[in-house]
Design a protein around this nucleic acid. Structure first.
Lengths: 144, 144
DNA sequence: CTCTTATAGTTTGATATCAAGTTAAAATGA
DNA sequence: TCATTTTAACTTGATATCAAACTATAAGAG
């Protein structure tokens, strides 16, 4: 194979420019931070993000929620099992489609989220302040 | 607890502004894309990113490499085991510190990376073109 | 030199991630 | 209607992720 592709310049180019690499690093750092913030509640950042959209009136099927989170359906199946076991969500049968199921917040889930939101607000302010140039809406374009 | 935190406005604020949520989604999308691109080589995006810095002259200890990747030392232990089993890296004893180990690319690893780099270049160009406003250097500030 | 503390890496356990294949139900078409 | 295709969710297997506890070695204090 073409060995000219394995130069120091190539290494530096990938290291400095790769959006996948940069996004994985940022995602790991932020996941760790928010996991620690939510840990007194026994929540992970991912569980928090999965529960937030269920606070309002939206009643997605599991697949719709997975798509919103840009995650695989198989991941959703596993994740919702954990939340159900902890009593934070319940799964409603869909009217009209016996295959589909719709997760909803339980009362316990709602109360836990009421505690989690202020923790999110504080930590997010700190993160945003340290990276003033970065907007969530910009990240949403990434990888599409 | 203060139920006023669980308004529709709160849901929308977190959905639209949360940098953690946005980075996890972007990271999942990009991981999926590059995993598929590298799959003919039996490589994941994470394995690729772990091998790239070993192409050049840098000879990090496992912990230094983990820090560069913003990942936990325990994750590094597991990841390097897979790469070693596949014969892509070898682990050298450190001179002067019997605890430390330094991963190096094997010849097979080097040849595989020579094949992977052109695949990366093509996919990355497509990703960058679809998100012209996003720079890796900006993402590097996120979560620090 | 020895005791204490700090550091490098590993192990374990729980959750997260996705590809590939499976099951059951819905939609389509003949 | 009945057969085919598509869709929603689940299962399985492999890797990824980190906290916490652990082992072995190194560094520092006295």
């Amino acid at each position: 194979m073409n060995e000219t592709s394995l130069t120091i310049e190539t290494v530096h180019e990938i290291r400095d420019d790769c959006l996948c690499f940069a996004s994985q690093r940022a995602a790991r750092r932020l996941a760790r931070r928010f996991d620690r913030v939510f840990s007194p509640l026994g929540l992970t950042n991912g569980q928090f993000s999965m529960l937030v959209p269920l606070i309002g009136l939206w009643r997605p099927r599991l697949g719709e929620l997975a798509e919103f989170l840009a995650m695989d359906a198989a991941t959703m199946t596993a994740a919702v099992k954990t939340l159900k076991k902890r009593g934070l969500v319940a799964l409603l049968a869909d009217e009209g489609d016996a295959r589909a199921r719709r997760p909803v917040l339980t009362q316990a889930g709602r109360e836990l989220m009421a505690q989690a939101v202020p923790l999110w607000r504080k930590e997010h302010a700190a993160v945003q302040e340290a990276a003033p140039g970065v907007k969530a809406s910009t990240l949403d374009q990434l990888g599409r």
